[in-house]
């Protein structure tokens, strides 16, 4: 009697372990992505982005599609989330006289890279813009550099170089023509367009 009970106990523990291990082999993949997205995605906002996106200001994109399955998103849900980011956010903003991409744009750029990698026939044009300080033709150079660093980052994430081209408008197409520092900050940008 005791022996059969024990066997059943062991068997059930074993099978439970098997089931659990099966679950856990799936998790690392999801876990990594979740870790990345939760690390970066806390607040994708800033006034600058809302200048370009319509609605959803300040939303935490994690919650857009909801989460289920004990906190892990399905592939489909993750893709939908990324696509939403890609459609709503297209601009990287820069500091004065600067061409460095701030960390806060990494999730957005990742979303664009994911899309472009999975659609190798799609091409994107990256625009570079500056504020109006300086001369118009010299600002073309700064605009080009901003577009270039974004293009290079996308390529480092696997986007093919023939999918990307750059154009600089220098100071010619500002988003905001008022002469305040806040307006200037909105104008210093690179924009991914399809």
């Amino acid at each position: 009697m005791m022996k059969s009970l024990q066997i059943i106990k062991v068997a059930s523990v074993l099978s439970l372990a098997l089931v659990l291990s099966a679950c856990t082999t799936k998790v690392p993949e999801d876990q990594t992505d979740d870790a990345m997205s939760s690390a970066g995605v806390t607040t994708i906002s800033g006034a600058e982005d809302t200048a370009n996106t319509s609605g959803l200001a300040g939303n935490d994109a994690n919650l857009v599609n909801g989460v289920n399955n004990n906190g892990y998103m399905t592939e489909a849900q993750k893709q939908a989330q990324q696509e939403q980011i890609r459609q709503q956010q297209r601009s990287v903003f820069f500091a004065f006289d600067n061409t460095q991409i701030s960390d806060e744009y990494i999730p957005m750029l990742t979303a664009h890279a994911t899309y472009l990698r999975s659609h190798p026939m799609v091409k994107a044009v990256i625009e570079g813009h500056t504020d109006e300080r300086g001369t118009p033709e010299y600002n073309i150079a700064l605009g080009e550099r901003r577009a270039q660093v974004v293009a290079q980052y996308l390529q480092s994430l696997g986007v093919l170089s023939n999918q990307l081209s750059i154009i600089s408008y220098g100071e010619e197409k500002p988003l905001d023509r008022s002469q305040t520092e806040a307006a200037y900050a909105k104008n210093r940008r690179a924009v991914i367009t399809y």
Partner: peptide
């Protein structure tokens, strides 16, 4: 007439 239309910037 267009006298320069190379890839990237044509200016100044």
């Amino acid at each position: 007439e267009v006298i320069a239309s190379y890839p990237r910037h044509n200016g100044s």
